[in-house]
Every structure is written in C-alpha cells, then in structure tokens.
Design a protein around this nucleic acid. Structure first.
Length: 568
RNA sequence: GCGCUCAUAGCUCAGCCGGAUAGAGCAUCGGAUUUCUAAUCCGACGGUCGGAGGUUCGAGUCCUCCUGGGCGCGCCA
C-alpha cells in the first residue's frame, strides 16, 4: 500500500514533468498543522537552480498538479512552499484500507538485503551489566524492524569466549575454586576466582607465569583446560539465556570468538601473501598509510609471541559472514570506544576487495544520577539481573496500587511487561548517540514519552472492547467528524512512512516518538469522543479507529521488542 | 597532540535528507471527572539552540575556528 508521502511525491514528479521542470525537492510532512498535512519545497529548489522567482515556479507546478479529490486545492505559502491538505474523505478511505492490511501500511523494502546483525556480545565468566542493555536492546529492535521491512536478517551473538583472561580463570579454577559457591552463583564465583588470580599474579611473578602457562595449554587444546573452559562457557551461556528470556530476545546463531580459532593462522598468512600485512617489531601488522585517519594507527593481527588478537578474530568473522553466510550487509551494534577498531577491520575488508556494506552502529553510555557512568556504590558495574529485577518490582508496586483486584499471577505478568518495557523504551526512545541518565521515576511514569504511557493507551482500547462485549467488525464507513478523529486517523496513516526511516540511520527513537504522538492523539480522541455511547455511524467508525490504533501501538511496540498488557 | 562524539527551556530529552513563528515531558501555575482505566486531557509560564565567523532565498541542522564534557589512539577485548 502506497503511503500518502509516496503518493504525493509521485504526483509531484508527474506535475514537474508536465510543467517541463526537472525533478526536484521532496514531499515532507507539514511542519505545522496550519500548513496542511504535507508540503513540498520543489519550487524553492528549482528557483535556485534556474535563478527564477520561486513563487512563480510554484504557480507553474500548481497548474500542473493533478490532485483531483485527494487534497484541498494546494496553496503557495511563504517563500514558495506548496502546502497540501488531505481531504478528510481521503484520510478516511485510507484508514479503512489500513484495517484490511496486516502490514498496517508498511511496505516491504524494494531491494531486500541479506543482513547479519552483531549485537549484545557479552563476555564469558563476567556478569552481564547495564552496559549490555543498549547494544542488546538496540540490536534486537533493529533486527525486528529490518525483518519486518522484508530484509533477510541473521542475529548473531558474538560472545567473548576466548582471550588472555582465561589463563587467570583456569589458574583460579584449579587453585581457588569454591565448588559450593559455584553451584550457588556460577558467575559470581568465576569473577571471584578471576580477581583472585589476577591479584596474586600482580604480586607474584610465579603465579603470573603459571597463568600464562594455563593459557598456552588451553590454546594447545589441553584436555583438562579445555574442559574447564567448556564448563565456564556453559555456565555463562545459562546466565545469558536467563537474561534473554526475561528480555524476550533471541538469536539465530551465537558464534563466539572461539568459533574462529582455526581460521586465524590462515588469515595472517593470506594477508601477508597479499602484501596487506607486514612484519613490524616482531608482530604482524597492517598499516593504512593511504587512509589519512588511520595513517598512524596500525592494526596488529599477530602478536610477537605468536598469539592472535581480536582484530584477527574480527577479520575471520567478516569472512564467515560474507562467504559462509552469504551476507551483503553487516551491522555491528557495538559501543563507540571501538570505532577505531572497526574502521581498521572495514579498511582491511575493503583492501581485500570486499564490497559488502559495513556499518558500525555506535551508541552513548548509560549514566547514573551523578552524570557519570552508572556504577554501584562500591564502584562496580551494575548487574543486568539487578536492573531487570528492580524494574519488575517497581512496576509491580504500581500495578498493586492501581489495580489491586486483579489476580496475583496476572499482576505478576503485567509487572513484567511494564517493567521490562520501561527499561527498553527508556533506551530506545532516545537518540542512540546521546548518553542517557537512568531514572526509575521517569521511565516508569505514566506521563510523558514512556512505555507505560503507550501501554496505557493500548489498555484503554482493550477496555473499550471488553466493555462492548462485541467482536470487532470493520466499520462500513470511517467518518472523521471531529478534529480529534481526523488527527488520530492522520497519524495512523503515517505508520507506513515512519517505520522505514528508522533503518536509514538506525534510529528506533523515530518510531518511539511516532508511537508517543500516536498515543497522545489517541488520548485526546478518547477524552473528546465517546465511543460506545455515540450514535451510528460514529460509533462503528470510532471503534474502527480504536481497533486500528491498538494494532499500530501493539505492532510498533513489538518492533521495539516491547509487549503490551490487556489490563494494567 | 591527533581522532570520534556530545552541548537545545530550571530538569530530562525530540528535532530524519538544510525549510516557514525551534517542539515534548517533568517541575510551577490554572482548568476539566454523575463518563469506555483521571494511570488521562485542555491551557499558561518558560529559549541570544555552548561562543564567533562563513556558505544561501533560508542554518539547531552544512563548513572553519574556539570553549567545555565523554571516549579512543602498537601487541587486552
């Protein structure tokens, strides 16, 4: 189904051709209701190119503009804008059409991509903490949206399951492990033995050497060490899966760093042979002398002790994703501190002749009240589990307060939907590059741009249908008799315009903002327009608006990875 | 030192490719409920968009410089 924006853009192109003008400008939503619903700056752009009077050109375009009964007669305003106001019947007809469309007006991408999205990427033997929220939640939302847009998406969890820290973990396992503690809280115990080994190693050279030897043995696939490592990975995976279950996140594949181990030597050899890598100070290094910003930032792909590091692993990962998974688009949802690293990886891929579209999708940090990185009082990272638990507990208090008559199990379920939704929405509703200040009170508020506010709009809609006791049947006719109805319907028609723009620059907050405005429009409509008590044909029409709003809210939140309750 | 990034109302934030008088929420103040969830709605107050130049019909948005915060820059990941 064609959006209004696309339709009007097409009409504009026809008008320009008919008027003998070159294609120019764009059709955008009006910046102010007084300017109608859409506007185009085509005349301004053309006036600049032709050095002519913009209003005169606008008039030429108007003369050729065939909008029939779509819009009110277009007007020229300001410096030469053309304002387009849709007629209520046009909006009503489109709204009725949307009720029949299970995609709610969102067209599939004309050129579907084969995408792999790398997001989350927690480390084995370390607890997941608040810092993992953004990558995980943002990556998941982008995956959901890209899939809905018709792209072929593989979600890959690039788990940090290999590296020098395992020397310490294995040493700690052999010398410091408390089995009972491991049973109780595996990750906490793994962290404890790692820290213990690390502390010993810093003061005792013999321990440092022992840790190094454990690492070498692991890398040589020593059965005992490999077994310990396997168990650490399994314990951590169990922890990750628990978090993903609460967060309602799933991966298609989970290829940890270790998956690429046996490919690393070949990569170094290949890059040497191709003349891309060279030996420098005993290490194998790739220089980027032709790239200004990387000119003095070489990438090490083999250390002088013969070991590989994460640059090598990430090159292997590119190979796997492009060659084995046949992907043409690689999205990395990884924090901004790794910008330089990914520039290097992408530059190497380019030099190897790869043409895939590589994107490093970065994001800001989560801060505490003090505007510093969010930490516990003792200065540690805040465990993800604690954040999620507290979100549910706080949401539960709200539900108990507002709706104490609901059965216990239902309240528990609602609290989970609201609490987790609030945490996700707080993150996704903000532009990803800005740091955001974590605040329970704000994210769980029923006012403002929050998950509960949107969920409440949905719940009000469900409540109407429960009260009516009727099955929803599409109205024969949508009538937009009040400003609130017209406003709501107009918003509903924009869903198909908004969703695709999210992926342009990876900004789920565009969708979140839209949903907030939709909920806002709905609440205004709800206050001004009685539904069940109104007369036909308004009653059926308003029920239809409610139904469609419910569907768009629910689908929109689903695209952000957020659920909606039936009651709250 | 170099690179990336951010700076918008008292606070928290929107503002996609440059568009018309820069928008929300919170807070403050004033209204609305015999009503489908008031968990909401309507209104008022509140701005030299960090500073200075530049590009152009038009700049919060693009360019240059400056100030301030965050992050990164050869063998951790």
């Amino acid at each position: 189904m064609e959006t209004f924006q696309a339709l009007l853009a097409r009409k504009l192109a026809e008008a320009l051709a008919a008027a003998g003008l070159a294609p120019a400008g764009s059709v955008t939503p009006a910046t102010d209701p007084r300017f109608g619903d859409y506007q185009t700056n085509a005349a301004l752009v053309l006036a600049k190119q032709l050095s002519e009077n913009p209003r005169a050109i606008a008039q030429k375009i108007l003369d050729a503009f065939d909008l029939r009964d779509l819009c009110d007669p277009p007007t020229i305003a300001g410096a030469g804008f053309i304002n387009l106001a849709l007629r209520p019947e046009t909006i009503a007809a489109k709204t009725a059409e949307l009720l029949q469309d299970d995609r709610l007006g969102v067209e599939k991408a004309a050129a579907p991509k084969r995408i792999v999205i790398d997001f989350g990427s927690p480390n084995v033997a370390k607890p997941m903490h608040v810092g993992h929220i953004r990558s995980t939640v943002l990556g998941d939302a982008l995956a959901r949206i890209a899939s809905f847009l018709g792209h072929d998406v593989i979600r890959d969890n690039h788990i940090g399951d290999w590296g020098t820290q395992f020397g310490m973990v294995i040493y700690g396992w052999k010398n410091l492990l408390d089995r009972a503690a491991l049973e109780r809280d595996p990750i906490a115990e793994l962290v404890r033995i790692y820290k213990g080994a690390n502390d010993l190693a810093t003061t005792d050279p013999a321990v440092r050497e022992a840790c190094r030897e454990e690492l070498v043995k692991l890398q040589a696939a020593d059965p005992e060490n490999y077994g310990i490592w396997t168990e650490c990975v399994a314990l951590s995976m169990r922890e990750f899966e628990a978090a993903y279950k609460i967060l309602d996140i799933h991966y298609d594949i989970q290829r940890g760093e270790s998956f690429y181990n046996d490919r690393l030597a070949g990569i170094v050899e290949r890059l040497m042979k191709a003349g891309i890598a060279e030996i420098s100070e005993g290490a194998v290094v790739v220089f980027f002398r032709d790239v200004v910003e990387l000119a003095d930032k070489p990438a090490i792909i083999r250390k002088k002790d013969g070991g590989f590091n994460y640059a090598t692993t990430d090159i292997a990962t590119v190979d796997y994703r492009v060659d084995d998974l046949r992907r043409d688009t690689l999205w990395y949802v990884v924090g901004a501190p790794q910008i330089l690293h990914f520039k290097q990886i992408f530059a190497i891929a380019k030099r190897e002749g790869r043409s895939a579209d590589f994107r490093h999708i970065t994001f800001g940090s989560i801060l505490g009240d003090d505007r510093k990185l969010m930490k516990t009082r003792s200065g540690d990272n805040v465990p993800l589990r604690d954040v999620l638990d507290e979100a549910v507990i706080r949401a539960r208090k709200l539900v108990d307060e507002k709706n104490p008559d609901l059965p216990e199990s239902e309240r528990a379920n609602i609290a989970k939907i609201i609490g987790i939704g609030a945490v996700k929405y707080a993150d996704l509703s903000q532009y990803r590059m800005t740091d955001y200040i974590f605040s329970w009170d704000r994210m769980l508020s029923f006012q403002g741009n929050t998950a509960p506010y949107l969920q409440n709009a949905y719940v009000r809609i469900r409540s109407i249908f429960r009260k009516s006791g009727e099955e929803f049947a599409p109205a024969k006719e949508i009538v937009l008799g009040t400003p609130e109805e017209k406003n709501l319907a107009t918003r509903l028609c924009q869903f198909g315009e908004v969703v695709p723009t999210v992926v342009n620059d990876f900004r789920p907050n565009i969708l979140a903002n839209y949903l907030f405005e939709l909920a806002n429009s709905f609440h205004s409509f709800y206050e001004a327009c009685p539904v069940l008590k109104s007369e036909e044909p308004a009653r059926s029409s308003r029920l239809a608006l409610c139904e469609l709003t419910g569907r768009v809210l629910s689908k929109g939140l689903d695209l952000l990875g957020i659920n909606v309750p039936e009651k709250m």
